[in-house]
Design a protein around this nucleic acid. Structure first.
Lengths: 204, 204
DNA sequence: GTCTATACTGTGATAGAC
DNA sequence: GTCTATCACAGTATAGAC
Protein backbone atom coordinates (compact mmCIF):
# COMPACT_ATOMS: atom_id res chain seq x y z
CA UNK A 1 0.00 0.00 0.00
CA UNK A 2 1.25 3.50 -0.88
CA UNK A 3 2.27 5.80 1.97
CA UNK A 4 -0.56 8.20 1.20
CA UNK A 5 -3.13 5.43 1.64
CA UNK A 6 -1.42 4.13 4.75
CA UNK A 7 -1.68 7.62 6.26
CA UNK A 8 -5.40 7.68 5.55
CA UNK A 9 -6.06 4.22 6.98
CA UNK A 10 -3.93 4.85 10.06
CA UNK A 11 -5.63 8.20 10.65
CA UNK A 12 -9.07 6.63 10.35
CA UNK A 13 -8.19 3.94 12.89
CA UNK A 14 -6.75 6.45 15.36
CA UNK A 15 -9.58 8.96 14.88
CA UNK A 16 -12.14 6.25 15.59
CA UNK A 17 -10.29 5.06 18.67
CA UNK A 18 -9.42 8.38 20.34
CA UNK A 19 -11.52 11.00 18.55
CA UNK A 20 -10.13 13.23 15.81
CA UNK A 21 -9.29 16.20 18.08
CA UNK A 22 -7.23 13.95 20.35
CA UNK A 23 -5.06 12.58 17.55
CA UNK A 24 -2.02 14.61 16.48
CA UNK A 25 -0.16 14.44 13.20
CA UNK A 26 2.88 13.26 15.17
CA UNK A 27 0.91 10.33 16.59
CA UNK A 28 -0.21 9.31 13.12
CA UNK A 29 3.37 9.46 11.83
CA UNK A 30 4.70 7.57 14.89
CA UNK A 31 2.12 4.81 14.52
CA UNK A 32 3.30 4.26 10.93
CA UNK A 33 7.02 4.66 11.69
CA UNK A 34 7.42 7.55 9.30
CA UNK A 35 8.52 11.11 10.03
CA UNK A 36 6.09 14.02 10.47
CA UNK A 37 7.81 15.69 7.52
CA UNK A 38 6.91 12.73 5.34
CA UNK A 39 3.28 13.00 6.39
CA UNK A 40 3.26 16.67 5.41
CA UNK A 41 4.78 15.76 2.05
CA UNK A 42 1.64 13.77 1.28
CA UNK A 43 -0.92 16.10 2.89
CA UNK A 44 -0.90 19.87 3.13
CA UNK A 45 -2.38 19.71 6.62
CA UNK A 46 -4.45 17.65 9.01
CA UNK A 47 -7.70 19.02 7.59
CA UNK A 48 -6.88 17.56 4.18
CA UNK A 49 -6.69 14.10 5.73
CA UNK A 50 -10.04 14.64 7.40
CA UNK A 51 -11.68 15.87 4.19
CA UNK A 52 -10.44 12.88 2.22
CA UNK A 53 -11.71 10.45 4.85
CA UNK A 54 -15.04 12.26 4.86
CA UNK A 55 -15.27 11.88 1.10
CA UNK A 56 -14.80 8.13 1.45
CA UNK A 57 -17.59 8.04 4.00
CA UNK A 58 -19.84 10.26 1.93
CA UNK A 59 -19.52 8.26 -1.25
CA UNK A 60 -20.02 4.94 0.50
CA UNK A 61 -23.15 6.21 2.25
CA UNK A 62 -24.52 7.82 -0.91
CA UNK A 63 -24.05 4.57 -2.83
CA UNK A 64 -26.09 2.80 -0.18
CA UNK A 65 -28.88 5.39 -0.17
CA UNK A 66 -29.16 5.60 -3.95
CA UNK A 67 -30.64 2.13 -4.11
CA UNK A 68 -34.22 2.69 -5.21
CA UNK A 69 -35.37 -0.90 -4.96
CA UNK A 70 -37.21 -1.01 -1.67
CA UNK A 71 -38.17 -4.51 -0.76
CA UNK A 72 -40.99 -5.10 1.69
CA UNK A 73 -39.40 -8.06 3.41
CA UNK A 74 -38.34 -7.61 7.00
CA UNK A 75 -35.13 -9.53 6.33
CA UNK A 76 -34.15 -7.18 3.53
CA UNK A 77 -34.78 -4.12 5.68
CA UNK A 78 -32.70 -5.69 8.42
CA UNK A 79 -29.85 -6.25 5.96
CA UNK A 80 -30.07 -2.75 4.56
CA UNK A 81 -30.01 -1.26 8.05
CA UNK A 82 -27.03 -3.40 8.91
CA UNK A 83 -25.11 -1.98 5.95
CA UNK A 84 -25.95 1.54 7.12
CA UNK A 85 -24.75 0.73 10.63
CA UNK A 86 -21.55 -0.75 9.26
CA UNK A 87 -20.85 2.46 7.36
CA UNK A 88 -21.46 4.50 10.51
CA UNK A 89 -19.25 2.22 12.59
CA UNK A 90 -16.45 2.43 10.04
CA UNK A 91 -16.40 6.22 10.29
CA UNK A 92 -17.71 6.56 13.80
CA UNK A 93 -15.34 9.39 14.69
CA UNK A 94 -17.56 11.67 12.59
CA UNK A 95 -20.51 10.88 14.86
CA UNK A 96 -18.88 11.22 18.22
CA UNK A 97 -17.83 14.85 18.50
CA UNK A 98 -20.04 16.54 15.93
CA UNK A 99 -20.28 20.00 17.45
CA UNK A 100 -16.53 20.24 17.96
CA UNK A 101 -15.75 18.78 14.54
CA UNK A 102 -18.31 20.68 12.51
CA UNK A 103 -17.66 23.84 14.49
CA UNK A 104 -14.10 23.80 13.18
CA UNK A 105 -15.02 22.50 9.71
CA UNK A 106 -18.27 24.05 8.58
CA UNK A 107 -18.19 22.65 5.06
CA UNK A 108 -17.91 19.11 6.38
CA UNK A 109 -20.82 19.85 8.69
CA UNK A 110 -22.95 20.95 5.76
CA UNK A 111 -22.13 17.85 3.75
CA UNK A 112 -22.91 15.69 6.77
CA UNK A 113 -26.25 17.41 7.18
CA UNK A 114 -27.06 16.63 3.55
CA UNK A 115 -26.38 12.95 4.21
CA UNK A 116 -28.72 12.96 7.20
CA UNK A 117 -31.39 14.72 5.16
CA UNK A 118 -31.03 12.09 2.46
CA UNK A 119 -31.37 9.35 5.05
CA UNK A 120 -34.52 10.96 6.36
CA UNK A 121 -36.07 11.17 2.90
CA UNK A 122 -35.10 7.58 2.08
CA UNK A 123 -36.64 6.43 5.36
CA UNK A 124 -39.90 8.22 4.58
CA UNK A 125 -39.94 6.67 1.13
CA UNK A 126 -39.40 3.17 2.52
CA UNK A 127 -42.19 3.66 5.07
CA UNK A 128 -44.61 4.91 2.43
CA UNK A 129 -43.75 1.97 0.18
CA UNK A 130 -44.40 -0.44 3.05
CA UNK A 131 -47.66 1.36 3.75
CA UNK A 132 -48.78 1.10 0.13
CA UNK A 133 -48.11 -2.63 0.33
CA UNK A 134 -50.19 -2.98 3.48
CA UNK A 135 -47.23 -4.12 5.56
CA UNK A 136 -47.33 -0.96 7.65
CA UNK A 137 -50.19 1.20 8.88
CA UNK A 138 -49.56 4.82 9.85
CA UNK A 139 -50.69 8.34 9.05
CA UNK A 140 -48.36 10.69 7.19
CA UNK A 141 -47.70 12.60 10.38
CA UNK A 142 -46.78 9.42 12.19
CA UNK A 143 -44.43 8.48 9.38
CA UNK A 144 -42.66 11.85 9.51
CA UNK A 145 -42.10 11.62 13.26
CA UNK A 146 -41.08 7.98 12.93
CA UNK A 147 -38.53 8.75 10.20
CA UNK A 148 -36.97 11.47 12.32
CA UNK A 149 -36.67 9.06 15.25
CA UNK A 150 -35.21 6.34 13.05
CA UNK A 151 -32.51 8.61 11.63
CA UNK A 152 -31.68 9.97 15.06
CA UNK A 153 -31.39 6.50 16.59
CA UNK A 154 -29.25 5.20 13.72
CA UNK A 155 -27.05 8.29 13.93
CA UNK A 156 -26.35 8.13 17.64
CA UNK A 157 -26.71 4.47 18.55
CA UNK A 158 -22.98 3.75 18.48
CA UNK A 159 -22.15 6.80 20.61
CA UNK A 160 -24.89 5.84 23.03
CA UNK A 161 -23.70 2.24 23.25
CA UNK A 162 -20.15 3.45 23.91
CA UNK A 163 -21.16 5.78 26.74
CA UNK A 164 -23.75 3.42 28.20
CA UNK A 165 -22.17 0.01 27.78
CA UNK A 166 -18.56 0.90 27.08
CA UNK A 167 -18.66 -1.01 23.81
CA UNK A 168 -15.84 -0.42 21.37
CA UNK A 169 -16.07 -2.92 18.57
CA UNK A 170 -18.89 -3.83 16.24
CA UNK A 171 -20.50 -6.19 18.73
CA UNK A 172 -23.36 -3.82 19.46
CA UNK A 173 -24.31 -3.19 15.83
CA UNK A 174 -26.98 -5.87 15.82
CA UNK A 175 -28.60 -4.36 18.86
CA UNK A 176 -28.62 -1.01 17.07
CA UNK A 177 -30.41 -2.55 14.12
CA UNK A 178 -32.86 -4.12 16.54
CA UNK A 179 -33.50 -0.81 18.31
CA UNK A 180 -34.32 0.87 15.02
CA UNK A 181 -36.55 -1.97 13.94
CA UNK A 182 -38.37 -1.79 17.26
CA UNK A 183 -39.29 1.81 16.40
CA UNK A 184 -41.15 0.54 13.36
CA UNK A 185 -42.55 -2.61 14.98
CA UNK A 186 -45.75 -1.16 16.48
CA UNK A 187 -46.86 0.06 13.06
CA UNK A 188 -46.28 -3.31 11.34
CA UNK A 189 -48.84 -5.94 10.36
CA UNK A 190 -49.00 -8.77 12.93
CA UNK A 191 -47.24 -11.19 10.60
CA UNK A 192 -44.15 -8.99 10.09
CA UNK A 193 -44.17 -7.97 13.73
CA UNK A 194 -43.82 -11.58 14.82
CA UNK A 195 -41.15 -12.21 12.25
CA UNK A 196 -39.21 -9.28 13.64
CA UNK A 197 -39.52 -10.65 17.17
CA UNK A 198 -38.04 -13.96 16.03
CA UNK A 199 -35.18 -12.22 14.23
CA UNK A 200 -34.49 -10.07 17.26
CA UNK A 201 -34.15 -13.11 19.46
CA UNK A 202 -31.88 -14.80 16.95
CA UNK A 203 -29.52 -11.85 16.73
CA UNK A 204 -29.33 -10.63 20.32
CA UNK B 1 -22.16 37.96 41.98
CA UNK B 2 -18.76 36.75 43.21
CA UNK B 3 -15.95 36.35 40.68
CA UNK B 4 -15.86 32.60 41.21
CA UNK B 5 -19.51 32.28 40.26
CA UNK B 6 -19.13 34.62 37.32
CA UNK B 7 -16.34 32.39 36.02
CA UNK B 8 -18.61 29.38 36.24
CA UNK B 9 -21.54 31.06 34.53
CA UNK B 10 -19.38 32.55 31.79
CA UNK B 11 -17.67 29.22 31.19
CA UNK B 12 -21.01 27.44 30.93
CA UNK B 13 -22.28 29.94 28.36
CA UNK B 14 -19.12 29.71 26.26
CA UNK B 15 -18.88 25.91 26.53
CA UNK B 16 -22.47 25.59 25.32
CA UNK B 17 -21.91 27.99 22.44
CA UNK B 18 -18.55 26.77 21.12
CA UNK B 19 -17.97 23.39 22.77
CA UNK B 20 -15.71 22.93 25.79
CA UNK B 21 -12.58 21.93 23.85
CA UNK B 22 -12.85 25.09 21.72
CA UNK B 23 -13.00 27.47 24.69
CA UNK B 24 -9.70 28.56 26.29
CA UNK B 25 -9.18 29.89 29.78
CA UNK B 26 -7.99 33.12 28.16
CA UNK B 27 -11.30 33.47 26.32
CA UNK B 28 -13.24 32.98 29.52
CA UNK B 29 -11.16 35.64 31.28
CA UNK B 30 -11.44 38.03 28.32
CA UNK B 31 -15.23 37.64 28.18
CA UNK B 32 -15.42 38.68 31.85
CA UNK B 33 -12.80 41.43 31.60
CA UNK B 34 -10.57 39.85 34.21
CA UNK B 35 -7.00 38.62 33.85
CA UNK B 36 -6.11 34.96 33.27
CA UNK B 37 -4.11 35.10 36.51
CA UNK B 38 -7.26 36.02 38.37
CA UNK B 39 -9.10 33.07 36.89
CA UNK B 40 -6.31 30.77 38.07
CA UNK B 41 -6.54 32.28 41.54
CA UNK B 42 -10.10 30.95 41.76
CA UNK B 43 -9.60 27.62 39.99
CA UNK B 44 -6.56 25.36 39.98
CA UNK B 45 -7.14 24.53 36.31
CA UNK B 46 -9.72 24.28 33.54
CA UNK B 47 -10.74 20.78 34.61
CA UNK B 48 -11.84 22.09 38.00
CA UNK B 49 -14.27 24.45 36.28
CA UNK B 50 -15.63 21.58 34.23
CA UNK B 51 -16.06 19.32 37.24
CA UNK B 52 -17.94 22.01 39.18
CA UNK B 53 -20.28 22.65 36.26
CA UNK B 54 -20.84 18.92 35.91
CA UNK B 55 -21.77 18.72 39.59
CA UNK B 56 -24.41 21.41 39.04
CA UNK B 57 -25.82 19.43 36.15
CA UNK B 58 -25.70 16.16 38.05
CA UNK B 59 -27.50 17.43 41.10
CA UNK B 60 -30.20 19.18 39.09
CA UNK B 61 -30.85 16.04 37.04
CA UNK B 62 -30.82 13.78 40.09
CA UNK B 63 -33.35 16.02 41.82
CA UNK B 64 -35.62 15.66 38.82
CA UNK B 65 -35.26 11.88 38.62
CA UNK B 66 -35.77 11.28 42.32
CA UNK B 67 -39.42 12.20 42.05
CA UNK B 68 -41.29 8.98 42.71
CA UNK B 69 -44.78 10.27 42.07
CA UNK B 70 -45.55 9.11 38.57
CA UNK B 71 -48.77 10.58 37.32
CA UNK B 72 -50.59 8.86 34.50
CA UNK B 73 -51.74 12.04 32.79
CA UNK B 74 -50.25 12.83 29.42
CA UNK B 75 -49.92 16.49 30.38
CA UNK B 76 -47.85 15.62 33.44
CA UNK B 77 -45.54 13.40 31.43
CA UNK B 78 -45.15 16.20 28.90
CA UNK B 79 -44.21 18.64 31.65
CA UNK B 80 -41.76 16.20 33.25
CA UNK B 81 -40.10 15.57 29.90
CA UNK B 82 -39.89 19.28 29.31
CA UNK B 83 -38.00 19.73 32.57
CA UNK B 84 -35.57 16.99 31.54
CA UNK B 85 -35.04 18.67 28.18
CA UNK B 86 -34.45 22.01 29.86
CA UNK B 87 -31.75 20.49 32.04
CA UNK B 88 -30.10 18.96 28.98
CA UNK B 89 -30.30 22.23 27.07
CA UNK B 90 -28.79 24.15 29.97
CA UNK B 91 -25.71 21.89 29.99
CA UNK B 92 -25.78 20.89 26.35
CA UNK B 93 -22.00 21.09 25.98
CA UNK B 94 -21.81 17.79 27.91
CA UNK B 95 -23.92 16.09 25.24
CA UNK B 96 -22.24 17.39 22.13
CA UNK B 97 -18.70 16.03 22.23
CA UNK B 98 -19.03 13.09 24.59
CA UNK B 99 -16.24 10.90 23.28
CA UNK B 100 -13.74 13.73 23.28
CA UNK B 101 -14.87 15.03 26.68
CA UNK B 102 -15.17 11.71 28.47
CA UNK B 103 -12.02 10.43 26.79
CA UNK B 104 -10.10 13.18 28.56
CA UNK B 105 -12.12 13.02 31.79
CA UNK B 106 -13.01 9.44 32.57
CA UNK B 107 -14.52 10.12 35.97
CA UNK B 108 -16.98 12.58 34.49
CA UNK B 109 -17.83 9.97 31.86
CA UNK B 110 -18.63 7.43 34.55
CA UNK B 111 -20.85 9.84 36.44
CA UNK B 112 -22.62 10.73 33.21
CA UNK B 113 -23.21 7.08 32.48
CA UNK B 114 -24.79 6.68 35.91
CA UNK B 115 -27.22 9.51 35.11
CA UNK B 116 -28.22 7.84 31.84
CA UNK B 117 -28.70 4.53 33.62
CA UNK B 118 -30.90 6.24 36.17
CA UNK B 119 -32.95 7.82 33.38
CA UNK B 120 -33.42 4.44 31.76
CA UNK B 121 -34.61 2.87 35.00
CA UNK B 122 -36.98 5.78 35.70
CA UNK B 123 -38.38 5.47 32.18
CA UNK B 124 -39.02 1.76 32.62
CA UNK B 125 -40.73 2.45 35.94
CA UNK B 126 -42.97 5.11 34.40
CA UNK B 127 -43.93 2.79 31.54
CA UNK B 128 -44.74 -0.06 33.90
CA UNK B 129 -46.84 2.27 36.04
CA UNK B 130 -48.76 3.41 32.99
CA UNK B 131 -49.20 -0.19 31.97
CA UNK B 132 -50.57 -1.16 35.38
CA UNK B 133 -53.09 1.65 35.05
CA UNK B 134 -54.18 0.44 31.63
CA UNK B 135 -53.03 3.60 29.89
CA UNK B 136 -50.32 1.73 28.01
CA UNK B 137 -50.18 -1.77 26.55
CA UNK B 138 -46.83 -3.42 25.91
CA UNK B 139 -44.83 -6.53 26.78
CA UNK B 140 -41.81 -6.27 29.07
CA UNK B 141 -39.48 -6.70 26.13
CA UNK B 142 -41.21 -3.91 24.26
CA UNK B 143 -40.91 -1.66 27.30
CA UNK B 144 -37.17 -2.32 27.62
CA UNK B 145 -36.52 -1.50 23.97
CA UNK B 146 -38.83 1.52 24.21
CA UNK B 147 -37.04 2.87 27.29
CA UNK B 148 -33.67 2.59 25.58
CA UNK B 149 -35.01 4.47 22.57
CA UNK B 150 -36.57 7.15 24.76
CA UNK B 151 -33.35 7.81 26.67
CA UNK B 152 -31.33 7.83 23.47
CA UNK B 153 -33.68 10.29 21.78
CA UNK B 154 -33.80 12.58 24.80
CA UNK B 155 -30.01 12.46 25.09
CA UNK B 156 -29.24 13.35 21.50
CA UNK B 157 -32.22 15.38 20.31
CA UNK B 158 -30.55 18.74 20.84
CA UNK B 159 -27.37 17.66 19.04
CA UNK B 160 -29.46 16.25 16.22
CA UNK B 161 -31.56 19.41 15.90
CA UNK B 162 -28.39 21.50 15.81
CA UNK B 163 -26.78 19.46 13.04
CA UNK B 164 -30.00 18.96 11.12
CA UNK B 165 -31.80 22.27 11.50
CA UNK B 166 -29.02 24.53 12.72
CA UNK B 167 -31.03 25.40 15.82
CA UNK B 168 -29.17 27.10 18.64
CA UNK B 169 -31.67 28.29 21.22
CA UNK B 170 -34.35 26.44 23.11
CA UNK B 171 -36.87 26.79 20.29
CA UNK B 172 -36.62 23.13 19.33
CA UNK B 173 -37.18 21.77 22.83
CA UNK B 174 -40.90 21.29 22.31
CA UNK B 175 -40.27 19.30 19.19
CA UNK B 176 -37.87 17.11 21.16
CA UNK B 177 -40.56 16.45 23.75
CA UNK B 178 -42.96 15.64 20.94
CA UNK B 179 -40.51 13.22 19.31
CA UNK B 180 -40.09 11.33 22.57
CA UNK B 181 -43.83 11.25 23.16
CA UNK B 182 -44.33 9.91 19.64
CA UNK B 183 -42.17 6.94 20.59
CA UNK B 184 -44.68 6.05 23.28
CA UNK B 185 -47.78 6.98 21.28
CA UNK B 186 -48.37 3.67 19.47
CA UNK B 187 -48.54 1.83 22.77
CA UNK B 188 -51.05 4.23 24.33
CA UNK B 189 -54.79 3.78 24.81
CA UNK B 190 -56.78 5.54 22.06
CA UNK B 191 -57.94 8.27 24.47
CA UNK B 192 -54.40 9.31 25.51
CA UNK B 193 -53.15 8.90 21.98
CA UNK B 194 -55.63 11.47 20.70
CA UNK B 195 -54.87 13.81 23.56
CA UNK B 196 -51.21 13.61 22.61
CA UNK B 197 -52.00 14.44 19.01
CA UNK B 198 -53.87 17.56 20.11
CA UNK B 199 -51.03 18.64 22.39
CA UNK B 200 -48.52 18.06 19.62
CA UNK B 201 -50.43 20.33 17.27
CA UNK B 202 -50.72 23.00 19.95
CA UNK B 203 -47.00 23.03 20.68
CA UNK B 204 -45.46 22.66 17.23
C1' DG C 1 -8.38 39.55 44.93
C1' DT C 2 -6.49 41.22 41.03
C1' DC C 3 -2.98 42.40 37.78
C1' DT C 4 1.23 41.92 34.46
C1' DA C 5 4.69 39.28 32.78
C1' DT C 6 6.43 35.14 31.66
C1' DA C 7 7.57 30.16 31.48
C1' DC C 8 6.35 25.72 29.65
C1' DT C 9 4.30 22.51 26.69
C1' DG C 10 2.26 20.36 22.78
C1' DT C 11 0.85 20.77 18.10
C1' DG C 12 0.78 22.19 13.36
C1' DA C 13 3.62 23.12 9.85
C1' DT C 14 8.06 24.27 6.99
C1' DA C 15 13.07 24.14 5.25
C1' DG C 16 16.54 21.88 3.42
C1' DA C 17 19.66 17.73 3.27
C1' DC C 18 19.75 12.99 1.48
C1' DG D 1 9.89 10.09 -1.06
C1' DT D 2 11.81 10.38 3.22
C1' DC D 3 14.44 12.25 6.94
C1' DT D 4 16.15 15.66 10.66
C1' DA D 5 15.87 19.99 12.51
C1' DT D 6 13.43 23.71 13.63
C1' DC D 7 9.93 27.45 13.72
C1' DA D 8 5.72 29.65 15.15
C1' DC D 9 1.95 29.78 17.77
C1' DA D 10 -1.69 28.82 20.95
C1' DG D 11 -3.12 27.32 25.33
C1' DT D 12 -2.18 26.13 30.19
C1' DA D 13 -0.41 27.52 34.14
C1' DT D 14 2.73 30.10 37.57
C1' DA D 15 5.45 34.01 39.90
C1' DG D 16 5.49 37.99 42.03
C1' DA D 17 4.04 42.92 42.34
C1' DC D 18 0.15 45.73 43.86
Amino acid sequence: MKTRDRILHTSLALFNEFGEPNVTTLQIADEMDISPGNLYYHFKNKTEILVELFSWFEQQMNDLLDIDDFSASVEDQWLFLHLVFENIAQYRFLYQDMVNLFGRHEKIGLRFKRILEKKRKATILICKTLEAQGVLTATDKEIFALAENIVLTATYWISYAKVMHGSQGDSELNQGVFQVMSLVAPYLRAEEREQLQVMGEAYL
